[in-house]
Simulated scan of single mutants.
Amino acid sequence: MSLYRNAVWFLNGIHQYTRKGYEAASKDFEPQDLDVSVVGRSFMVTGSNSGIGKSTAMAIAKKGGRVHMVCRNKDKAEEARAEIVTESGNTEVYIHIVDMSETRKVWEFAEAFKKQYPSLNVLINNAGCMVHKREMNDEGLEKNFSTNTMGVYILTQTLIPLLQKSRDPRVITVSSGGMLVQKLRVDDLQSEKGRFDGVMVYAQNKRQQVVLTQMWAKTNPVIHFSVMHPGWVDTPAVSTSMPQFHQMMGDRLRSVEQGADSVVWLALSRAAARTRSGQFFQDRRPVPAHLPLAWTHTSPKEIQTFVAKLENLSEAVQSLGPYKPQVV
């Protein structure tokens, strides 16, 4: 079955996830959807010093939004902020130094943010990683899982009360079409069984994000949740974590602006807010979160078990000692 999933996924990808796929899909875009001003609205973008995150932050700043950049590297963040401010003319761009793999620090940051800021209209979970060897963070969590799943879960869950108090609140999570080859493994969330394959671990994390988004949409009807696939994009992260794939695809890869397009559309457009919450998007339209006949659906019992495990891990993180986040 995994061979079938991989084959179907790759064939779909060649047609849909490449630069040509974006160009074909964009013929049906409504240009006026992004003819908006978001002055007065606040946006948090994780992993925003490069790639899709930086392109998203730039687009929001150009529309007048207040941008909170959550980044791991202070120097790269300051360089990206300076570029965004210069090009957009918008000085309401703020840096928060947080490593999304360190889940305790993520929780402390989110708690501090709620106290400091009166509102947050849009949270964009963009930061992610693909580590090919098993590494553990300070809390004993596998690094891909701690960054891609627990960091997203803790940040979103902690900020939900602030989002609920804000006008037209939205949460967008940047996932991956790679999740289509994975079924949620409730009994192996941190990929401890069998051979450790970073690409498949990443895909499993991205399936976890899709399931989380669907759960949040059901339990938080005030907030519009969405998860999306940016396509195969030419980013520093792809060239570093998947060098052979990056070299093989070459100029067929999408630009970062093309990869960020659906994120920006979901964050800014009125049209996006009218879609049903909890869906998986690709090129501004909802698409199935499962391949035909792939048997990757998750049962209600499995979702309940999955969420309970994340809640337990989150409570364990919160019981650890205090942390003081850096705000620049």
Results as ranks from 00 to 15, higher is better:
L3A: 13
N6I: 08
V8L: 15
F10E: 11
N12L: 13
H15L: 15
Y17M: 10
S26P: 01
D33A: 10
V36Q: 13
V36E: 14
V38P: 02
G40E: 08
M44V: 09
V45H: 04
T46V: 09
T46P: 09
A57W: 00
A57D: 00
A59V: 04
I60C: 10
V67L: 10
K74E: 13
A77N: 06
E78L: 14
E83T: 13
E83V: 10
T86H: 14
E87D: 14
N90L: 01
N90D: 06
N90M: 06
T91P: 05
E92C: 07
H96R: 06
S101H: 02
E102P: 00
E102W: 02
F109C: 02
A110D: 07
K115R: 14
K115N: 12
Q116I: 02
S119K: 12
N125C: 15
H132S: 03
H132K: 10
K133L: 04
K133R: 11
N137W: 12
K143F: 06
N148I: 01
M150E: 02
I154G: 00
I154Y: 05
I154R: 12
T156I: 03
T158R: 07
L159C: 10
L162C: 08
Q164P: 01
K165P: 00
R167D: 15
R167K: 12
R170P: 05
V171F: 09
G177F: 08
M179V: 00
V181F: 03
Q182T: 02
Q182R: 12
D187T: 12
L189H: 05
S191P: 02
K193N: 11
K193Y: 09
R195Q: 11
Q204D: 11
N205E: 09
L212K: 08
T213K: 04
M215Q: 14
N220P: 00
N220F: 13
V222P: 00
F225C: 07
H229A: 02
H229L: 01
H229C: 07
P230N: 06
G231I: 02
V233A: 04
S239K: 15
P243V: 04
Q247H: 12
G250K: 15
G250C: 11
L253R: 11
S255Y: 07
A260E: 06
D261K: 06
W265M: 04
T275D: 11
R276H: 05
S277T: 14
F280P: 09
F281C: 01
R284Q: 11
R285D: 01
V287Q: 10
H290D: 14
L291D: 10
L291Y: 05
L291F: 09
P292R: 09
P292Y: 07
L293I: 11
K301V: 12
E302Q: 15
I303Q: 15
T305H: 13
E315P: 00
S319K: 15
G321S: 14
P325N: 05
V327C: 09
